[in-house]
Design a protein around this nucleic acid. Sequence first.
DNA 1: CAAAACTAAACAAACGTTTAATTAAATCAA
DNA 2: TTGATTTAATTAAACGTTTGTTTAGTTTTG
Lengths: 209, 209
Amino acid sequence: MEYNDKQIAIMDAAEKLFADNGFSGTSVRDIAEAAGVNLAMISYYFGSKEKLMEAMFRYRGDFMRLKLESILLNSNLTPLQKVDKLIDEYIERIFNKQCFHKVMLREQMVDNTGPIAEQITQLKATNQALFKQLIHEGQRKGDFKKGLDVPFLMMTLVGTTSQLLTSQKYYRALNNLQEMKNEEFEKHIKKKLSAYLKNLFKAILTYEA
Amino acid sequence: MEYNDKQIAIMDAAEKLFADNGFSGTSVRDIAEAAGVNLAMISYYFGSKEKLMEAMFRYRGDFMRLKLESILLNSNLTPLQKVDKLIDEYIERIFNKQCFHKVMLREQMVDNTGPIAEQITQLKATNQALFKQLIHEGQRKGDFKKGLDVPFLMMTLVGTTSQLLTSQKYYRALNNLQEMKNEEFEKHIKKKLSAYLKNLFKAILTYEA
DNA sequence: CAAAACTAAACAAACGTTTAATTAAATCAA
DNA sequence: TTGATTTAATTAAACGTTTGTTTAGTTTTG
């Protein structure tokens, strides 16, 4: 599907507003104003507010899919180095599209069936399969220990990152980082998160009780 | 603050609906119907929908605070055993009040100031301080390694649990647990999560690179 | 019999969507 | 290239609902 500039402007504006105020907390008038288009253009291009959201998920869904083929196939890297690369790839992707990620986190909670739930399921399935492949490779080579629970490892990766993302302001407040500029702060936490997760996964994957 | 039966019924109904559909996605008419009270009673007792939410946070806020005093002071337990108990205490608390926890997760994302943000800040501060105390004790005794990042450890605990909680249906779908009954499923994942997190924290806290 | 609890109805404001009219862009025969 | 004609884009206004809240009146309680 191809989108013109105006359609993209609408989706970008909606993404930001949905992330901050939720789907129901955002009116189509808010979106129209933020996107700088006439109110009626949203129905004109997307049919409805709901279908705009669905279009957004189709538009962004692809981007959120981890691209690990080159990493997985690179035989110069140890399994642990590949996990490190996966972590960085994941962090980069989430922070690059934090608004959409927040929208997804919200949407996960609602008990709906339909195209959006379908998109989320497929995304999770793909990412989990890639992650699983990597873990199993490490286990075959004897670098990682046996009995690892891939879905739960995934939850730690996703959950820790999401927690940092959604509670940024509380992290700032509780750790006296209020004065730091937004851009600097984001760099700071990305770097910290990366180092933290790499160390954490090294520990879980190799630690023997 | 004391609440009568009807007020509690309203807060319980609101909690469930806010968790599933969000604050804006829930109408006061929905709440009134679910609680079995007249629409006007919500304004009558709480003043407004917004203030109902604030009352809910005051009502539930206390419950969400970790109660670790007895654990912390128990000198028969090793620091690692205390962490295990903290994990179970945390899981129990979150699963006992999953609806409210979901409401909190949603509310964290919105960029508001006011009594709710204040409540969340205090809750996080308290829990983080308790956790910190435990970690430092373990480090003093030489059981835990140095250089641990307490806020990030907290994010892993909170994030992994939240991720499991908010994406239960996806976890079921991706791991072929569709046929399992709700009650059985919840027991199952609680047990798995507990074992997983205990092993994970043992690894991070004691693993030396 | 006064205070509290409760109700059905009404309120204005905001909502998502549609309509009818206008402007801009594209198509195309001459 | 021109001017006519069709198609697409854009708009302000209006539509019917739903929203949160209030009112004015009734019932219940201490």
